[in-house]
């Protein structure tokens, strides 16, 4: 059987793919922003002096990390309304991805926290900084610098996971590509172009993060 490539049909709907890409990126940015806050809180809790908070952080991480993202997304979109919480598909997906990324980021930040030398923390305490001041002015910046490379990995992973939103009909890139595929039957062309867009976006994200890494002093 011959299959001759015709990209024309895909280019005709290219604007749909681009808007899908923008929606996916937007969802990922919102989710990762919330997830970063969750991850920071849970990471500091998990290495902190309060046993209850350590347990809460450990429970959160193991609960979320042991659920497939797709299940979490379906749970948020279909089960929450039954419990009286109604979110639109964007909100429920962003919320699910935020929770999910938060669990992974907790581990990334926790590893970064463990790598902060104890002596440096003592030096901060010795000049009279309180525990909170030490965490904000000394521990957090060192931790972020140490965590940056794996942070980049997680960010890229979360952006790619925005494709899961297609399962609840969020018109992001994968959803739009599937529609074009069904409408035009240009299977190879559609998915090749969609893949190209994912790769291009990830390369740009990676470059931005590397740029950020270079701005931090080396230590």
């Amino acid at each position: 059987m011959e299959y001759s490539l015709h990209f024309g049909a895909v280019w005709a709907s290219f604007d749909k793919l681009l808007s899908g890409l923008a929606i996916g990126l937007g969802l990922a940015v919102v989710a990762v922003a919330i997830g970063t806050v969750l991850g920071l809180l849970a990471a500091f809790a998990s290495v902190g002096p309060y046993r209850l908070l350590r347990w809460a952080a450990a429970f959160y991480v193991s609960l979320i990390r042991n659920l497939p993202l797709l299940v979490l997304v379906l749970l948020a979109y279909f089960a929450l309304p039954q419990a009286g919480i109604t979110l639109d598909k964007y909100q429920s997906f962003a919320g699910a991805l935020a929770l999910y990324s938060g669990a992974y980021l907790t581990e990334v930040f926790r590893a970064g926290l463990i790598s902060v030398p104890k002596g440096v923390i003592e030096a901060a305490r010795a000049i009279g900084l309180t525990r909170l001041q030490t965490n904000v002015s000394v521990v957090a910046p060192i931790m972020l610098r140490n965590a940056l490379p794996s942070l980049g990995n997680t960010f890229i992973g979360m952006f790619k996971d925005s494709s899961i939103a297609a399962a609840i009909a969020v018109p992001e890139l994968t959803f739009e590509a599937r529609k074009i595929n069904v409408d035009t039957f240009r299977v190879i062309e559609t998915w090749t172009v969609a893949s190209g867009l994912y790769i291009a976006a990830c390369v740009v994200i990676a470059a931005l993060l590397r740029g950020l890494e270079r701005r931090f002093p080396k230590f």
Binding site: P117, G119, V120, E122, A123, A124, A126, I127, G128, V138, P141, I142, R145, F216, P217, F219
Partner: peptide, 14 residues
Amino acid sequence: MTGMVFQSFNLFPH
């Protein structure tokens, strides 16, 4: 009220 200088310097690397 006291200053401390450590064996391993412990400067803030950032």
